[in-house]
Design a protein around this nucleic acid. Structure first.
Lengths: 231, 231
DNA sequence: GTTTCGATCTCGCAA
DNA sequence: TTGCGAGGTCGAAAC
């Protein structure tokens, strides 16, 4: 990994075109040839970048650039597409290289899969007498997150999201349409369950007779005793 | 901006929990208190991070950590939520700080908004006699990108994407369904226009009687004389 | 402020 | 390889 702090201007041409005027920034060159251009603010997204795999060539500036103070030009090219990034360097304030080795990677907890596991174990949160049929119930067009029966024995398809928006309602609608054609399952009701549901999604869901439910992940995790065993 | 290369382990707790085992990484601390943890590969997304605004405190390791070689602990806390990031540092290979100043920011060209503006100005690309009714035509479920009339005076709803996939077709279908219930507009045809259309999206669109059109952004930009004024 | 939607999205998984 | 869905999405524009 190479770290350079320098005054530079940057141009990207590929899926779009983008330009960064001259300013002091961090240039980060990774072992796979990818390049990140960071300013001293904003979030984790660089101002400009080149994805791996890429190759970086440092070349002499052309006459026109040299006369305005450019000392070095980086031509960064993507290996598979014709995306390219041109970095014009005026003056370098820092330049160092470091050996890092490969990374063991990140371990996560609390994503949709965890919500699904918890709700499957605590299916009665949806209503007294509910029982789980199975998780990831397979249909011709994809898996329904949870399939359950209510206290009357009627089939209920549950679509789970961390954040419920209109796409999730469409997805559940397709499943319900398909499942209601199956005489062994019909009639099937739908429940759209999420930690948060957007107003437009709620409107669309309720217009289609789909029940909306807000889930409290912390409360559900509190009930689950395996949470304390994670780390 | 502070750059540290160090052996470290990292724990995040907030909207989820995540853990990084001990390894050598780049730790980047920005002026706004945000912290990025990068390995020497992958794309621009850090392995772990804290978004601004945040505050970073360096503290002495506790007894338990010190005995396993931890020399320093960074406690990074978000200012508005209770997200926190704990970095345990074993040994530092590099540590430097740099003044960067504020960044003038990125100038972009070629995103969906540009496509929309160009197609609105060149609506006859879609067919002789087409005229624009308006951009961002509002409906109860959201705005239609472009509303036009064809040479016969019939209403045409246009959905614009840079890359056309199945979601865009679903979106246009919803608009068409709604607009065709409005006697002042009906009948409304649909056009799905994009720089690139995925085969599955094309099949679905044509199955629903929606016309597919590939847009040549470079050609459209060539017609537009404002393109030369961008940089 | 909040909400909505595009993104050079990135990332992971499964068919 | 490609497609699909999630994301600690990020970011900007509209309301």
């Amino acid at each position: 990994m190479r770290l350079v702090i320098a005054q530079c201007s940057v141009d990207y041409e590929g899926r779009l075109r983008a330009h960064l005027p001259r300013a002091t920034r961090l240039l980060l060159v990774k072992a796979d040839g990818s390049v990140l251009v960071h300013s001293d603010g904003g979030s984790y997204k660089p101002l400009n970048w080149m994805s791996p795999p890429a190759v970086m060539r440092s070349v002499e500036p052309e006459e026109e650039d040299r006369t305005v103070g450019v000392t070095e030009v980086w031509q960064v090219a993507h290996q598979k597409s014709d995306d390219r990034l041109i970095v014009r360097i005026y003056n370098k304030l820092h330049d160092s290289s470091h050996e890092l080795g490969i990374d063991p990677g990140l371990i996560k907890d609390g994503v949709e899969a965890d919500l699904q596991r918890l709700l499957a174990e605590q299916i009665e949160t949806l209503g007294a007498g509910y029982s789980l049929v199975r998780r990831e119930y397979m249909t011709a067009i994809g898996p329904v997150d949870l399939l359950a029966r209510d206290s009357q024995g009627a089939t209920v398809a549950i679509e789970l999201k961390r954040r419920g928006d209109i796409d999730g309602v469409e997805q559940l609608t397709r499943y319900l349409e398909l499942m209601n054609r199956d005489p062994l399952l019909a009639p099937v009701r739908g429940i759209f369950a999420a930690q948060q549901i957007k107003p437009q999604a709620r409107t669309l869901a309720e217009d289609r007779g789909i029940e909306c439910r807000i889930l409290d992940y912390d409360a559900m995790r509190g009930v689950d005793d395996s949470a304390s065993r994670l780390f």
